[in-house]
Design a protein around this nucleic acid. Sequence first.
DNA 1: GTATTTTTATGCGAAATGGTACATAAAAAA
DNA 2: TTTTTTATGTACCATTTCGCATAAAAATAC
Lengths: 207, 207
Amino acid sequence: MVHKKATRARGRPRAYDPAAALTGARDAFWDQGYAATSLDVLSDATDMNRPSMYAAFGDKRSLYLQTLDRYIADGAAALKQTLSREHSLAEGLQRFYENAISLYLEQGGPRGCYLISTATTEAAQDPEVGKKLLGALRGLDQAIELRLSDAKAAGELDPSADPAALALMASAVLHTISVRARSGESRAALEAIADRAIELICGNFRS
Amino acid sequence: MVHKKATRARGRPRAYDPAAALTGARDAFWDQGYAATSLDVLSDATDMNRPSMYAAFGDKRSLYLQTLDRYIADGAAALKQTLSREHSLAEGLQRFYENAISLYLEQGGPRGCYLISTATTEAAQDPEVGKKLLGALRGLDQAIELRLSDAKAAGELDPSADPAALALMASAVLHTISVRARSGESRAALEAIADRAIELICGNFRS
DNA sequence: GTATTTTTATGCGAAATGGTACATAAAAAA
DNA sequence: TTTTTTATGTACCATTTCGCATAAAAATAC
């Protein structure tokens, strides 16, 4: 028999929620970028004092890398749901872009994708950031390509369509939406881009 | 008769080349991002001492904004040439992406587009950066759309094609190439993306 | 109650940051 | 030659930065 929470931890209980702290740190980085976000700001955003941050997440860079990991994992999980075959391809893509746009415009100000808006800048100097970013990009490509292959097999796509090429386009459209969102483009304009992309990808086979 | 350089400037001649200094500053920002680039680094990169930098370009932010302006202007000028109607649409796009990829991978390390790699991060906090970025994005869209409209009229494009929608796709592909380039993607992979995009845009009308 | 363990809280300190004063140098103008 | 103008170079300042040392606090274990 395995006890869940069998015995309470021994020392003083922590006053912060690790997951919430990571979210807070991520939001701070998201707003200001990695380099411009000071430890003071992070301390506020995580509701932790600095020594606790260090104990829990290591230094600033390590904390940032962990926020990247969680964003990537969360994104992958959400994508799996959004592009499941419960809905048609066009519907799935519609939800996919709609969710992305909502995420990119959340929190008042325009944010864009966390990776594209903050990690691209760091990627040139920090190979580990680059690796994570590249992995996430390829993961998205593959997930979409898989869904498109399925759609092609199911007759939801032109038989002559190239799922890999179309997947790259679908990814590209997400990236452009991120860049435009962060530059202050309106929600309507972003949605128009998504709609046109869906039309282009699904062609006459749109449901 | 107007004399060019009629009279020489009055005081001590400047020891730096303003255009070269701006290029150096831009490259420094390009490598490290705006926030992470210190005045010491900029002083080295511009071959100017700090007081001269202030006299010439104002503070750090002002210098950055000027590098953005020049990059945008240079890009627009280059685009005009690349997408001129001397060459077919497919050729023009080929050159367009090829030039971009070369620029994005120049200087050893991967850099990506200067705007997407550095200005997106700042755009969320600095509305002026956002405005410049958004303007540049829309300018690219319009330039490509114009070229596509011409191509359509000239029979280089499917009569049912939507130039505005295709222009957005072409822009999106440039943006994704920038993000991927900065994340360390290989030149071959980037070129493959460009090729697929050109195929998709030009369709069977490829020359 | 006392010891032990884990976290919090204050705040220090070396280094780096953005920005500037001030004296000097180099040219043209008087 | 002297004055004026512009640019340079050194050195500095106040602030902020990251990271950590140290002590108090809060829980369990004995």
